[in-house]
């Protein structure tokens, strides 16, 4: 074989193993562009109406949860808690009804038991941060989203929607002695410090 032929064979083999371009399937290309087009506002609008509000029936009773967590935190985590990833934070999906015992700038304290004057839970009433509602109900799975940016955008939009549409009812009408029915999510990192009272981010607030 001449040198030229050998070079041609070598070049052909090289290009076969290391092609200059790759053809990607339309699905792959669409997935990339889909990721760029994620609309958290539209997603949360649909999620809120179709899943979150109807899913409220699945929440654990807040008073029962508090009792279990105080008695056996590990059992509470196993039975009712949700954790995303490798962290030590657990989220709980809770519902209940209580009497307002304190009203502060950013939270409203509720007693869940008759005759109990100390707040056992507090409903967050100021700026909402964190992932409690996104991760606490178990209705959203990080693996269903193209990337963490989209997943984080959900938290921002859910929290913003709570601030705009849920909290005004609480802030405008809260007064000591009134009854509140709530559904929301709580985040517990440390059972020693996070239960007195248990802070809850509410997404349903009803004050009859």
């Amino acid at each position: 074989m001449t040198i030229g032929a050998a070079a041609a064979v070598g070049t052909a083999a090289l290009l076969y193993c290391f092609p200059l371009f790759h053809v990607v399937s339309l699905d792959q290309a669409e997935q990339s562009s889909a990721a760029a087009e994620f609309d958290p506002v539209a997603f949360v609008e649909k999620f809120w109406t179709d899943q979150l509000i109807p899913g409220a029936a699945q929440a654990t009773d807040a008073a029962e949860l508090l009792a279990i967590v105080k008695e056996n935190p590990e059992a509470a985590r196993q039975a009712h808690g949700r954790s995303v990833g490798l962290g030590h934070v657990y989220y709980y999906f809770v519902a209940g009804s209580g009497r307002i015992v304190s009203v502060e700038k950013n939270r409203v304290g509720l007693s869940l038991r008759d005759g109990h004057e100390k707040a056992q839970v507090s409903l967050e009433a100021g700026n909402i941060f964190g992932n409690a509602v996104r991760d606490g109900t178990g209705l959203l799975d990080v693996n269903d989203f193209a990337n963490s940016r989209d997943f984080n955008a959900l938290s921002a939009e859910i929290n913003g929607r709570i601030e705009r549409h849920v909290l005004p009812t609480l802030r405008d009408n809260a007064a000591v002695g009134k009854t509140v029915r709530f559904v929301g999510c709580a985040e517990i990192m440390d059972e020693q410090t996070d239960l007195d009272p248990l802070p809850i981010v509410p997404f349903i607030v009803e004050m009859p």
Partner: peptide
């Protein structure tokens, strides 16, 4: 930015 490529993706929040 693909969920069909890597087996897993481990990152901090």
């Amino acid at each position: 930015n693909a969920t069909d490529a890597a087996v897993s993706q481990i990152l901090s929040d």
